[in-house]
Design a protein around this nucleic acid. Structure first.
Length: 479
RNA sequence: CGGGGCGUAGCGUAGCCUGGUAGCGCGCUUGGUUCGGGACCAAGAGGUCGGAGGUUCAAAUCCUCUCGCCCCGACCA
């Protein structure tokens, strides 16, 4: 059955990725080019992502709201670099109720403008600040080339929009959210990310400063997994978001915005997946474990299923997300492969022998074959599984970190740089000049991913032009 | 928009060059035997061959137009 096998990552990484998304039933193509249907398994993963993030947002004082999807086109045009950045990819509604609209409406590509409009009405005094609002929604950007999860015309995300009295406070907020994304990626998704600052050319349209978390995918390419923007007073001035300060002087606010999208699912797939399929980090997996019953006849079936049901109840009571795969007419071997492909972190096998011995077999997804298998007593299984899941979570993180390390080169010259970005990250002195950045892109296809917040210190010479550089930057080919 | 590939059953495809009225694998349904790493046997259901027009006695096949999708590039979370 050759069609059951996925292409390997080495053979064709892009095809491997597509096949996983479709076959693991994370998403499907929609009838409109570039749009996707997120299937229940994929949406469940997204729900777990949203819960983990939302918890962090609320803990830091943010509240959720919902702003409209349709935005007057004139709004987009109010902030000059915002227009320039977004107009080529706008979807525009020109008709409604059978009539041509007086003013076309754009389907939000992001909500700075409409939220800016609202903030201008709501904010009067320094006492109204800060405003810390987030919304979970979808946005539309008319991209030319799309890929499931990584870049779709419509994508789901959260966008946080905050307004502050001072530059310092807005900067602190921007950095706080970057830290939250970093913590989320590392803790929940076991994806090591590099938080850093974007170059001017990679900045969000309308931002003074853009920060991002950058992750290395299984093919060595970089993926921007979340962004946090310090918008300065640009939108405050365009939308007249003003407040009266303590001394009675009218001031413009300082605003921020930050977002993380369903693209993150792409990051999970490409960070942890192997040639067998998806590997989901236990903390985000829709099913943390799947119980696979094994039996020959009706008598065995009755005993095994009864024991499996009991285990399921105990595990679910312990707060674990567990599925019992009681499908008829599908062999255990098929189920093993199926759930491995779908990335379930742990498999619990229970057959007649285990029923007798009051044990189960635990098989780790991150270590295939005999090596990842162990017997465990049914008594106290929830505790055993919980511990094992934590261990799998840790091991996925350290494996990903190890992979990134071994594919990152601190380059000392341009030749070394060129070969480094062929298969991973280059960490290099960069003078900060956009001319060098542009040349590097032309010559190597690598872009400046970020200037890591964490710097080892010292100074050196720009990897391209040799002029003095005070910081090292990450360069890589990117998604 | 440029380059490449492709539209035939739910999915993957053969047939197209050299026209003669559609085949295979997977999946699906039913019954039976299986079941500790992708089971097997038997019997079934399922197709206006992307769409429109043309050539012809006859079109999945030849011609024209058209729609759509995927991959690579420019753009981008």
């Amino acid at each position: 059955m050759p069609e059951m096998k996925l292409p390997t990552r080495a053979e064709d990484f892009a095809e491997w990725y597509n096949q996983i998304v479709l076959r693991a039933e994370l998403a499907d193509y929609a009838p409109v080019r570039g749009c996707m249907i997120v299937r229940p398994y994929g949406w469940n993963l997204w729900e777990n992502i949203t819960e983990a993030l939302d918890r962090r947002f609320k803990r830091t004082g943010h509240v959720n709201a919902a702003f409209p999807m349709l935005i007057p086109r004139s709004f987009i045009e109010k902030e000059k670099s915002h227009v320039a950045g977004f107009s080529p990819e706008l979807a525009v509604v020109t008709h409604g109720g059978g009539e041509e609209l007086e003013e076309p409406l754009v389907i939000r590509p992001t909500s700075e403008t409409i939220i800016g409009h609202a903030y201008a009405k709501w904010i009067q005094s320094y006492r109204d600040l800060p405003v810390l609002i987030n919304q979970w929604n979808s946005v539309v950007r008319w991209e030319l080339r799309t890929r499931l999860f990584l870049r779709t015309l419509e994508f789901y995300w959260q966008e946080g929009h905050t307004a502050h009295a001072t530059r310092e406070e807005a900067e602190a907020e921007t950095r706080q959210m970057l830290d939250i994304y970093t913590d989320f990626a590392v803790t929940e998704a076991a994806i090591p990310v590099i938080p850093g600052r974007k170059s001017a050319s990679e900045r969000f349209a309308g931002a003074d400063e853009t920060y991002s978390i950058e992750a290395m995918m299984g093919d060595g390419k970089a993926l921007q997994a979340g962004t946090s923007h310090h918008l300065g007073q640009n939108f405050a001035k365009a939308f007249e978001i003003c407040y009266l300060d303590r001394s009675g002087v009218l001031q413009h606010c300082w605003t921020t915005s930050w977002g993380l999208s369903t693209r993150f699912i792409g990051a999970v797939i490409m960070t942890h997946g192997d040639d067998q399929g998806l590997i989901l980090p236990p903390r985000l997996a829709p099913f943390q474990a799947v119980i696979t019953p094994i039996f020959k006849d009706d008598q065995e079936k009755a005993g095994v299923l009864a024991a499996a049901e009991k285990l399921l109840a105990a595990l679910v009571d312990a707060g674990l997300r567990v599925k019992l795969d009681a499908r008829e007419g599908v062999s255990p071997g098929f189920k093993f492969n199926d759930w491995e492909m779908r990335g379930v972190p742990l498999r619990i096998e229970i057959g007649p022998k285990d029923v007798t011995k009051e044990s189960v077999v635990l098989a780790r997804r991150d270590r295939l074959g005999k090596e990842g298998k162990q017997f465990a007593p049914q008594a106290g299984l929830a505790a055993t599984v919980t511990k094992l899941l934590e261990e799998i979570q840790r091991s996925l993180l350290s494996r990903a970190l190890e992979f990134r390390k071994s594919n990152t080169v601190e380059t000392s010259d341009y030749e070394e740089f060129k070969s480094a970005v062929e298969k991973g990250f280059a960490l290099s002195w960069w003078c900060g000049d956009s001319g060098c950045e542009e040349k590097i892109k032309e010559e190597t296809k690598a872009t400046m991913r970020c200037i890591p917040i964490e710097q080892a210190g010292g100074s050196g010479k720009c990897v391209y032009c040799g002029r003095p550089a005070g910081e090292k930057s990450i360069f890589a080919r990117a998604y």
